[in-house]
Computed example of a mutant assay.
Amino acid sequence: MRQETLSEYTCEASERPPRVYGFGHAVVVELHGDIDLVAFSGSAPLLDAVAAGPEALVIVDLTQVDFLDCSGLSLLMRIRRRVTARGGHLRLVCTQPMMLRMLRVTRLTTLLKPAPTLSAALVDEPEPPENPEPPENKET
């Protein structure tokens, strides 16, 4: 899915709308500015369209984001749910210490898998099983 295809979903609330482009075998959504309640309502249609797309890996690039609040986390989790529901994977590119701290405190680092660069986000780690089988009880 490319920017031209998604032009009808452009975010109007931001001076710099999200940018969508291909990178390797993934589609990247580059967000800018503040990701808050206003950005949520403006960006959700675009991100929903990307999440519904054919690419198996969706990368959300937060390196140009200045502020991320709970609405922003909710938006990221919404996109993750939609991408994983169709069998895809979501990765983040995030280097800002405060955002990484927020992801750690909310225990979302294992779900959102922040990476320091786009190239690092392309590395596809195997997903842990949803319901791993409990280890067998071995009586000695």
Rank of each mutant, 00 (worst) to 15 (best):
L46R: 05
A26K: 02
S14F: 12
L100G: 09
A52V: 12
L57S: 09
T10H: 13
H89V: 13
E55V: 09
T5P: 02
C11G: 12
R16I: 09
A56P: 05
D36A: 10
V58D: 06
T110D: 13
L46D: 04
D124P: 00
E139G: 00
G22F: 01
G53T: 05
V65T: 01
V28G: 09
P126D: 13
Q96F: 12
L92V: 00
A13Y: 07
T84S: 12
R78A: 15
R104W: 01
V60A: 12
S43T: 03
A115Q: 14
L108Y: 01
L103C: 14
F23S: 00
M77E: 10
A52K: 15
V93I: 00
L75G: 02
P18I: 11
A13V: 15
D66C: 10
V38C: 08
M1P: 13
G22W: 00
D69S: 06
N131K: 10
G53K: 01
L57D: 12
Q64H: 00
E8W: 11
R81C: 03
M102V: 11
E55W: 06
I35V: 15
I79Q: 14
A49K: 14
V28P: 08
S14T: 14
E4L: 15
A39M: 04
E55D: 14
R81T: 05
V50Y: 04
S74D: 08
L68N: 10
E12P: 03
P18H: 07
M77N: 06
N137D: 10
V58I: 11
R81N: 11
C94G: 07
V105D: 02
R107K: 14
L68Y: 12
G24S: 10
R2F: 08
P18G: 15
T140S: 15
A26M: 01
E133C: 05
A13K: 09
D48W: 02
A56Y: 01
S41C: 04
P132R: 02
P54Q: 08
F40H: 12
G42V: 04
G33D: 04
L75S: 02
P45G: 10
R16H: 06
I79M: 15
I79E: 13
E125C: 02
R78C: 12
V50S: 09
D36N: 13
R2H: 14
T5Y: 01
L100F: 07
E139N: 03
T84H: 05
L62E: 02
R86C: 04
L76I: 04
L46Y: 05
H89S: 14
L73A: 03
G24A: 11
R101K: 12
G88W: 01
E15K: 04
D66A: 13
G88D: 04
L90D: 09
L68F: 11
T110K: 09
L112D: 06
A115K: 08
Y9E: 15
V28Q: 10
K113T: 15
E8C: 13
P132W: 03
T110S: 13
M1S: 15
V27H: 07
R101A: 06
L57K: 07
D61Y: 03
A26Q: 03
E55H: 10
